[in-house]
Design a protein around this nucleic acid. Sequence first.
RNA 1: UCCUCAGUAGCUCAAUGGUGGAGCAACCGGCUGUUAACCGGUAGGUUGUAGGUUCGAGCCCUACCUGAGGAGCCA
Length: 433
Amino acid sequence: MKMNIIRINEMKDFVGEEVTIKGWLYNKRSSGKIKFLIIRDGSGFVQGVVVKNEVAEDIFDLCDKLTQESSIAVTGVVRKDDRSPYGYELTISNIKLIQMAFNDYPISLKEHGVDFLLDNRHLWIRTPKQHAILSIRHEIIKAIQEFLNNNGFVRVDSPIITPSTCEGTSDLFQIDYFGENAYLSQTGQLYQEAAAMALGKVYSFGPTFRAEKSKTRRHLNEFWMVEPEMSFVDHYENMEIQEKLVEYIVQSVLENRSKELKELGRDLSKLEKIKTPFPRLTYDEAIEMLKKNGYEIEWGNDLGSPDETFLSNQFDKPVFITEYPSKCKAFYMQPKEDRPEVVMCADLLAPEGYGEIIGGSQRIHDYDLLIKRLKEENLPIEMYDWYIDLRKYGSVPHSGFGLGIERTVAWITNTEHVRECIPFPRTLSRIRP
RNA sequence: UCCUCAGUAGCUCAAUGGUGGAGCAACCGGCUGUUAACCGGUAGGUUGUAGGUUCGAGCCCUACCUGAGGAGCCA
């Protein structure tokens, strides 16, 4: 007889058949002559039932001894069972022990504190909630690439080791590059602009690094970002692409990861509302709205975190905040034609207080204007020589944006803190595991 | 860098200034449908560190260390 080695998420196709599942013992319950083994294999969780009268004695004894997280191959018949929260059960006939786990596995099924869980992140990711979050993270990344690939974008990754700060702001991680100072990249944008002039529509996808001592649920010192950049695309078209991308991400997760969303207890109706077009609010309108609601803010101040939370809470979709004062934003942003004190940019704020998930803008394409802006910001023009070249040789209007993966994952999975939205978070106080 | 809070068993938490406990995990035993199973038992401690107040400090005071939440900055 042929042995069916399957994964747990394929069980629905094998009802009534004998199969073998290779995995780990997540939990075990016993009632004397009947034992319940909760097995996980990476694709899902399932309960196996071992009845004393129906298996060899040594198999039943082995069940007694099995420790949490022991690796096993279990063979049995798949049964649909409404008593099981997983929908299916395995009536076990044989168990092959691969490794008996040490009996001091630290992660119990009871409650744990954040500090302890983060110290044990390498084991924490085995639990159902973390499994669901990381699965959805994968779905989000897959959807982003699908959307961009299907819309004519070419993936062109930016360097991670860079000679200087791109935007002249943030603190960077410094490294030694054969005796010269170099830095871990905080954005690949400038390189994407070069790539967009070569390939039209491009994107990069990779890690980015900020050495800022941020200590909030929205910040990581190493996080992942997708950065599309498009030639011949203006500020308004830029926003349309962004909202279509976000809609596509959310719909893909709803379609392909409903089981994981359910595991997390996510309110699906909130995600189902994420359809284009998204509301757009100019900075002027945002300031007015904030003032009307008792916030102390003046035109010209950048929006603070509580301000953004208030604004996003006024909508049940992500909201674009557009046309910020140029002094709040980076040097490369295109001023508005009839109102040069504001720039053609947009931040996309996620609903439910998850903060800014996209920052984007139309870039300056005029040679003289770019030089002027670099001088105004006191940036070393010689460091930007190649970037300035892009304005000398066939410059065209172009736009782009950066979407933060972990914040998007946190929002869609309704996770309190971004550190659970990346496999191994790097924060101010943690570099291990 | 600033503000707030917290450090007690492997984990989650109790303990009026007066002999440091419980649940879970581990170990031993019981139970034929358990869902973080349940029941009985065993073992498990330099109360973050260093000082101070007191007859007596887990508890009060000071400093430091570590962590968490938030601000600023940003995705």
